[in-house]
Design a protein around this nucleic acid. Structure first.
Length: 302
DNA sequence: AAACCATGCAACCGCCAGTAG
DNA sequence: CCTACTGGCGGTTGCATGGTT
């Protein structure tokens, strides 16, 4: 309410982009790279703010964007990643080549949420709705762990769950409510190939509340002890964590020292960018920046 | 045919973190 | 240290479009 946007202050254009504006921006970035976004509008002859240009480029003009409807696999992946990352759209988008965080966010809000509800799953907690309803007012004032799932669930997965990722929209999903299901976990089945890594629901042991409390203490300890975390991270296979990492922006700008007019910014191919199964684990990141800081601390970078 | 409604999507807003001066 | 600036992110809004009454 209080303050005006940058566009207002500078009397800049707002609203939908015209094809002419698109062309100007595209031509400019193609030729010079984006460099400093705030200076782009001037250089490109646009009556827009830098932020607006950046958004337009990222969400619409980028040449590596995959337009069109989401495949079933993509939808499933988004749901699975959302269970772990919560609303960290940019990190989710980093796992889906050619998709933007905005696109994914829109899909989630307009479509996937509904689908999950229809399946009886709470889109926020990813637990069965019945459980969520019952759980309310049960005296548990603990903050939701969605998007902040304890790392040990990934490093030491329980036995393979009954449901795998591809079953999200099976007619038989969700499974019969005979058991209580906790947060999603990701794990690698023992003795199998790396391809046996699966997502699934953790069966919680509601009767063991003491143990739960102990687990929570361990988790707090874990978070507060970078060395423990670092050890866990180092034990990861590339498939663990689903290769979740700090947003891996496609590299549009090469090292300025080696840049030429031809190689300065064009995006990597999708294959280079992120084949889930082949990319080595470089920046495992379950809890985003916080985790990054902690792991950095663990390795003595802080 | 017109009015109304629902939906999807593009873009804006405001906040935050990082960084340069 | 402090401040201003910038880029990035998630939440939200508003418009266009298609479907329904």
């Amino acid at each position: 309410m209080g303050r005006q946007s940058c566009c207002y202050k500078q009397k800049l254009r707002k609203g939908l982009w015209s094809p002419e504006e698109d062309e100007k921006l595209l031509r400019h970035i193609t030729k010079y790279g984006h460099g400093c976004w705030s200076s782009i509008p001037k250089q490109a002859g646009l009556q827009r703010c830098g932020k607006s240009c950046r958004l337009r480029w990222i969400n619409y003009l980028r040449p590596d964007l995959k337009r069109g409807t989401f495949s079933q696999e993509e939808e499933n992946l988004i749901i699975e990643l959302h269970a772990v990352l919560g609303n960290r759209w940019s990190q989710i988008a980093a796992r889906l080549p050619g998709r933007t965080d905005n696109e994914i966010k829109n899909l989630w809000n307009s479509c996937l949420k509904k689908k999950l509800k229809q399946k009886g799953i709470d889109p926020v907690t990813h637990k069965p709705l019945s459980e969520v309803e019952n759980g309310e007012g049960s005296g548990s004032n603990k903050p939701s762990l969605v998007g902040h799932h304890p790392i040990h669930q990934y490093t030491s997965p329980p036995p393979p769950p009954p449901q795998l990722s591809s079953n999200w929209f099976n007619p038989e999903f969700p499974p019969p409510m005979t058991a209580s299901y906790g947060p999603l976990y990701y794990g690698t089945t023992t003795g199998g190939s790396a391809n046996n890594s699966t997502w699934g629901l953790v069966q919680t042991q509601t009767e063991e509340e003491e143990e739960e409390e102990e687990e929570e203490t361990k988790w707090t300890e874990f978070l507060n002890n970078p060395l423990l975390m670092a050890a866990a991270l180092q034990n990861q296979t590339p498939q663990s964590y689903y290769n979740i990492e700090i947003k891996s922006e496609p590299c549009y700008l090469t090292n300025s020292s080696s840049s030429s007019s031809n190689d300065m910014w064009w995006p990597q191919t999708q294959q280079q960018q992120l084949p889930l199964q082949h990319e080595p684990l470089q920046n495992p990141d379950i809890c985003g920046k916080d985790m990054q800081r902690l792991t950095a601390a663990a390795f003595g970078h802080i």
